[in-house]
Write a protein that binds this DNA or RNA. Sequence first.
DNA 1: ACCGTCATGTCAGTGACTGACATCAGTCTA
DNA 2: TAGACTGATGTCAGTCACTGACATGACGGT
Lengths: 188, 188
Amino acid sequence: MGRWEPDSRGRLEQAALALYAERGYENTTVAEIAARAGLTERTFFRHFADKREVLFWGAPTLEALLVGAVETAPESASPIDAVVAAFEAAGPLFQERRDGARQRQRVIDANAELRERELIKLASLGSAIAAALRRRGVADPAATLTAEAGIAIFRVAFARWVSDSESRELAELIRESLGDLQAVTGGR
Amino acid sequence: MGRWEPDSRGRLEQAALALYAERGYENTTVAEIAARAGLTERTFFRHFADKREVLFWGAPTLEALLVGAVETAPESASPIDAVVAAFEAAGPLFQERRDGARQRQRVIDANAELRERELIKLASLGSAIAAALRRRGVADPAATLTAEAGIAIFRVAFARWVSDSESRELAELIRESLGDLQAVTGGR
DNA sequence: ACCGTCATGTCAGTGACTGACATCAGTCTA
DNA sequence: TAGACTGATGTCAGTCACTGACATGACGGT
């Protein structure tokens, strides 16, 4: 056995999510999270940049997945289709752990600071997707707007997917939201 | 003469913007802002909820303006046109103090925490616009998506307007961005 | 003259986050 | 195999955002 229990990072993450869910983000101190994980506050901040980041460290993975999907979409695909297809491809990533995703979302929705962090992660996602589109030869502002549209579509679809009354596949809801957006913007 | 110099709030705001611009948001303490305004730290927090809010207190005014414009748009206007027209109507509000708006934007763009706050303000704007659309009889998810699309259009137009190389009217850039979005999403 | 209000000041406290340095099991190297 | 090296963790002191409780004193009204 090593000097320390393994997977401190994972323990910190679980402890944080549990405490945020139990008593709310604001009523949880980092010292408490660390204690539940059998570690100290200082160690928490060595693994996560701040108290919120523990809920968002997966974002770069999602971003890489989406960027890859946009870049490798068939040349014939229109920009918006490439983006929407990328989000559809990410569907299973969420579908796998639906319950965890829901709990996490409930925690985020309950706190303004966490919503802020979620928004900047989505914005970063948007920038990365726009950059991938530019690499496909899409000019600006089309690239930026397409990425933003993709994000809006995803947000709407994800909200529906998380809500209790729905049990449909995320990918299906995404495609449906694309249709809604097209109907709404009027288009050319 | 009153017991105190008048307009503490305005002095705090000016001091904050000046210091954030001079030495950056992170390198400015609230105590320094208060001192420059001839007040104490505690008074700063009586006027502004936190260190960032001093740059964003105008948001509710803009929100009210946009909501009003959406609600009073001609019945014949499509949802997206009502929203875009509302943003166009807000154009002069920015045009009046172009230099101040630019400095503020430079400060915000230079700091991640401030960008977070900007994003949540825009999201709140989006929710308010979506609610106004619903009052016009637009159903969801169309209302939400239209509002989001409007925000995306505004963001792109505003970024162009702020950038040095442009000197066109904000309203003109907004209308142009609508066309770009329509071209990009394909639409029906 | 008196009283209540209200913007501000004062002060003590909590909690997020940081930098500097200590510890020590496991590993590598002479 | 002794000793140096590494890397994750602990310890500690410090800064700063933010809050609650209470004090102050000019002003306006009675």
